[in-house]
């Protein structure tokens, strides 16, 4: 009887299921949270702290305030790198998004064959960027043995080394990056197209719209939420792309493919100027944050 009365009291923490559930919920989240905080959140603060110090080859020479940032922004190379990051990011988007849209429309049109096509197009996406870079380096080799050069030679075109030409290196790097990633965007756009009711197209043909009008008035507006998702995912991923550049050109020739991301790699990991490198890392982090907040606003706004 006594035992029963104590068990009845719900305020006694242990028998209160709501409190137990709160503890259980937190207990389930904490392990994952711990790892993520340790590796994603702590470094952000630590990086900011380091960016205010003179650190070179892991040796800390003390607090120097904003000097790393001042040097960074006084250096024209930084601005050039930011400009190249923009060219790389928006160049890649400009190539990938139309290609992915076309691919998505084709995939839907082809039905079962379309699903096979999507699988085939996605194979490069499963590959390592560094392996992709190696592979294309071999294909783009001016000769002998270079596949592209041989094909071009067949048509009487003089082979040039695309990767070591200051004008062509950037477009080539963009093309290879897009080759690997554009099909990922096609997944999302294919799903987006699948959400558009087929009745709309039937109605449109009854109303006598041409194919181009159908795209402009139905496909495009109804696909725009998916396009926005694709744009946001790809912008962030292209802005941070560095592996394909390391593998193909190592930032060259004459820095023509040195984006901000590559500069971070060069300054922070190769030259081991970690104070300045952290300043770049923080700038990249802030640009990322800015991009994400921007897209979240856009996506959130579009939904209402």
């Amino acid at each position: 009887m006594n035992a029963q009365t104590t068990r009845q009291r719900p305020a006694a923490g242990e028998s209160d299921p709501a409190a137990a559930a709160r503890r259980a919920g937190l207990a389930l989240v904490v392990p994952a949270l711990g790892v993520v905080v340790a590796v994603n959140v702590l470094p952000a603060f630590f990086g900011f702290y380091s960016s205010l110090r003179a650190i070179f080859f892991f040796g800390d020479d003390g607090f120097i305030g904003w000097r790393n940032y001042a040097e960074l922004f006084a250096d024209p190379a930084t601005w050039a790198a930011i400009r190249r990051s923009m060219i790389f990011t928006f160049g890649s988007l400009g190539l990938a998004v139309p290609l992915a849209t076309l691919a998505a429309m084709g995939i839907r049109k082809l039905g079962a064959w379309g699903r096979l096509l999507l699988t085939v197009l996605l194979v490069p996406w499963a590959m390592s960027p560094i392996v992709v870079a190696l592979l294309w380096k071999w294909i783009l080799l001016p000769s002998p043995g270079g596949l592209l050069a041989s094909i071009l030679a067949h048509f009487g075109i003089e082979p040039i080394n695309l990767l070591s030409h200051p004008d062509f290196a950037m477009p080539t790097v963009i093309a290879v990056g897009v080759w690997r990633t554009f099909a990922f965007a096609a997944i999302i756009l294919t799903a987006g197209l699948g959400q558009i009711p087929a009745d709309l197209y039937r109605a449109a043909s009854v109303d006598g719209l041409t194919a181009i009008e159908r795209f402009r008035r139905i496909t495009f507006p109804l696909l725009s939420p998916s396009l926005l998702i694709v744009l946001s995912v790809l912008t962030i991923s292209y802005f941070n792309e560095v592996q394909i550049i390391i593998g193909l050109t190592a930032g060259g020739p004459i820095h023509s493919t040195t984006t901000l991301g590559y500069q971070l790699f060069e300054v922070g990991f190769v030259e081991l100027n970690q104070g300045k490198g952290n300043a770049i890392a923080i700038v990249m982090f802030l640009i990322n944050l800015f991009l994400i907040v921007g897209y979240v606003r856009l996506l959130g706004g579009g939904r209402k």
């Binding site: 029963q4 068990r7 009845q8």
Partner: peptide, 17 residues
């Protein structure tokens, strides 16, 4: 769900919690 007050008995056995 658990009641905030009172007792529930099934077959005479207190099963409240």
């Amino acid at each position: 769900e658990w009641p905030t007050e009172g007792r529930i008995l099934i077959g005479g056995r207190d099963v409240t919690h």
